[in-house]
Amino acid sequence: MALAIALVVIVVATVVFHFASPWWFTPIASNWGLLDDTILITLAITGAVFVAVNLFIAVAIVRFRHRAGHRAAFEPENRRLEGRLTLLTTAGIVAMLAPGLYVYSQMIAAPADAAQVEVLGQQWQWRFRFAGTDGRLGRTDVRHVSADNPFGLNADDPHGRDDVLVASPELHLPLDRPVTLLLRSHDVLHNFYVPQFRVKMDLVPGLVSRFWLTPTRAGRFEILCAELCGLAHYNMRGHVVVEDEAAFRAWLAAQPTFAAVR
């Protein structure tokens, strides 16, 4: 009996906690509100199952707990019931998977007009690079990395000379403009994570990974590393500032180009 009561209390406490909890999604600042929606769909379906299963067990314990003279039924299987439950489960799975895959198809298809920004990670700091006036990022290689060329830009590539280099861990992005982040690492795995943007992706040495988003809210947000990258993993801080186009242009113009720092 105590167990039945405990299960009911757990269900009630969980539901109350859910609605009273001060800990919830950090307010969103990107176009990926759909991700929050898919989480909510999944939460509604799984929450219902959680409540149903626990209450069912509680009722079963109360009704069929051992009493003198009581005897269990003998029921090896019930194909019809099992079939129905399987169908119901499958329907629930489809209801979660379909929207999930639909949103995913949007996540991996960046719009054609998305601007490109490179994010460079290394233990334990962030750097950023914008294409210059020619609109193209210059080629890079880890072999070119040195104290005065932290990005590893190839000095022979003309596209690289006008690249704008942001050596401080603060990235500015224009409001309401789609942007593809190209992620690169010089040493170990990192993960570019801004909680308000929702999307995140690993930085993998040896390849360029990417994701896209459109910042939809002006403000200054924290950049975190979300892939264990060594002792100072918890302290690999940065900021992203989302601002209107004019302010962004002014900031970008104040940053040095590769040619200027050489």
């Binding site: 990926w32 759909l34 991700l35 929050d36 898919t38 989480i39 999944t42 939460l43 379906i45 799984t46 199952v49 959680f50 799975i93 979660m96 998977l97 999930g100 895959l101 949103v103 995913y104 996540m107 993960n191 994570y193 929702r198 999307v199 995140k200 979300a226 892939e227």
Partner: peptide, 20 residues
């Protein structure tokens, strides 16, 4: 509980905000 939260993390787009 553990199985149900697996449905969040197994579903690729739902996983991305929650991973790590």
């Amino acid at each position: 509980i553990g199985g149900l939260t697996g449905l969040f993390l197994g579903n690729v787009s739902v996983d991305i905000p929650l991973s790590d």
